[in-house]
Design a protein around this nucleic acid. Structure first.
Lengths: 225, 225
DNA sequence: CAGGATCCACTATTGGATCCCG
DNA sequence: CGGGATCCAATAGTGGATCCTG
């Protein structure tokens, strides 16, 4: 297993990601000198972080793509026993101020999703975290239909946010893209509005892709042309 | 409320059904001299039977349309609080012998569904049976797409039945039309195969329309052309 | 028993809540 | 906290079981 060096091309990145297919997360952890616990409950982001390190992603938390020079975002997708995505996919956090005066083409969501390296990872909850295997990686660029659906949802949600109807947004809205809480605890900022009185988030939220959407995307990518 | 006389035309039937819109099942019961209980649990088919009587359906149990002369089947559809069908819609029972050598156009399913008078009835379970209101009736003839989907499901299911794979059929099969048990009790015929040894139903079953299908049908009918 | 259906236990989905790391 | 995500209680959906009448 090659590890940690920064890839210089999209092709090299995809090739290297595919070489990781078949390894378990425990094996990746060994290669990196990272202990992989038994349970995912106390190590929620670990699969993603192991793959970032293995593939040489530009480290640290940023509002930029993981592979800056290539404009490519890395996303792991947890698959259940039947091969379908178990969970929604986090896209980015929502900043109220950034929403107001931006359009779809300049939005953080679109920047993140223009080009994504999807790496499926086994995630049947009975399988210990370290025994879960990496699947076959795919490079995704939204096609016309996918882009239209993402944009339609984003514009609906963005206009609600801009209009101050943030508290009316629930995870039910959006066919493929949804808004949901994103915080370590539901109490994170809950007192803020009372004390400040300003138009502010009462709680951090993020954009997520629904599992049914990533399922369709994976199905399309797996189909030979 | 006019009641009980046999309608002579499709238009007259629809008109008369629409005049029942807004009445409660309790009111229909009074007009007919039938006691309507509080709960639907012990009166499951009552809404359908009240409407049959009010509209002058050719009485009794038959494998014929309710309005023989017109070739029209009457179906009540229970709606939940949000206006969506709560339940699947029974179409007809399945007879093994009748399946083998018949095709779609001659099938009982198609005969029943060629032309249907759908009468929605409120059915939020908290609402007492006699307080549930009749909704706006619609005459349905499957359009090309609906007919294609019904036929595709029927042919798949019919061929399984004809091939003797009856026991492998579950309610999961069929996009719009499904096969499910249809009996007063699960024990109805359960001992039969052991004692007789013949190729026979172990339990009566019927064809049903899925709620998602009738929901789409109602949505189409409600849309002004 | 066939026809009129609804009940309800169980499963699948989901979306609000939460966890770790740098 | 922002980025990496998963957990899991509650709800929605489904399909096997059941009920009444003629």
């Amino acid at each position: 297993m090659k590890k940690g060096t920064v890839p210089f091309s999209e092709g090299e990145l995809l090739e290297r990601a595919r070489e990781l297919g078949g390894y378990t997360l425990g094996e990746l952890g060994e290669a990196l000198g990272v202990a992989v616990p038994e349970s995912a409950a106390r190590a929620k982001g670990m699969a993603g972080q192991l793959l970032e390190k293995m593939l040489g992603a530009t480290a640290a938390s940023r509002a930029e793509p993981d592979f800056v020079g290539l404009g490519i975002e890395l996303k792991t997708i947890p698959l259940d026993a039947t091969g379908k995505p178990k969970e929604s996919t986090f896209v980015c956090s929502i900043s109220l101020s950034a929403m107001a005066d931006t359009d779809w083409e300049r939005s953080t969501v679109w920047k993140k999703l223009r080009k994504v390296l999807f790496v499926p990872v086994e995630a049947a909850s009975k399988t210990p975290l370290r025994d879960r295997r990496v699947g076959r990686a795919f490079m995704w660029t939204p096609n016309a239909d996918e882009k239209r659906r993402l944009r339609a949802d984003w514009e609906r949600l963005a206009s609600m946010i801009a209009a101050g109807d943030v508290e009316q947004i629930t995870g039910h809205l959006g066919d493929v893209l949804q808004v949901r809480p994103k915080a370590a605890s539901g109490r994170s900022l809950r007192r803020a509005p009372d004390e400040e009185g300003a138009v502010q988030w009462t709680m951090p939220r993020g954009f997520y892709l629904r599992p049914s959407f990533t399922e369709n995307v994976l199905a399309r990518l797996r189909r030979p042309e």
